[in-house]
């Protein structure tokens, strides 16, 4: 493997390790902490994993601001759909 590629692969390797680590935390939570408040750390970890993929693996950090804006808008619209739909179901 050429050295310049080795150099470039540091970030992907780190990303992979971080993701696998977060996944195993989530799995442990899923096995040993059933019910209760486990969903809060589980959701937080999931959000961290999503952000890691989005920003590092998909390189949103190095994209022009416009691209980041579009990714952001995508999630904003998901939250509109989520909030307003749940507003109905939680107040029935």
């Amino acid at each position: 493997m050429p050295p310049e590629l080795k150099q470039k692969l540091r970030t992907p390797i780190a990303t992979m390790l971080v993701l696998l680590g977060l996944l195993s935390v989530n799995v442990i939570l899923g096995i040993y902490f059933i019910h209760g408040w486990a969903w809060i750390p589980e959701v937080l970890i999931t959000v961290t994993m999503i952000l890691t993929v989005l920003l590092v693996a998909m390189e949103a950090l190095h994209e022009p601001p416009l691209t980041r804006l579009f990714a952001f808008i995508g999630f904003c619209w998901v939250s509109i759909l989520l909030t307003l739909t749940m507003m109905d179901y939680l107040t029935r």
Binding site: I80, L84, M87, D88, Y89, T91, R92
Partner: peptide, 16 residues
Amino acid sequence: FVWGHHMFYNGESPYA
């Protein structure tokens, strides 16, 4: 943000 106005009388909660 307005789509629920199609469902005022379809079982949607009054708060929504």
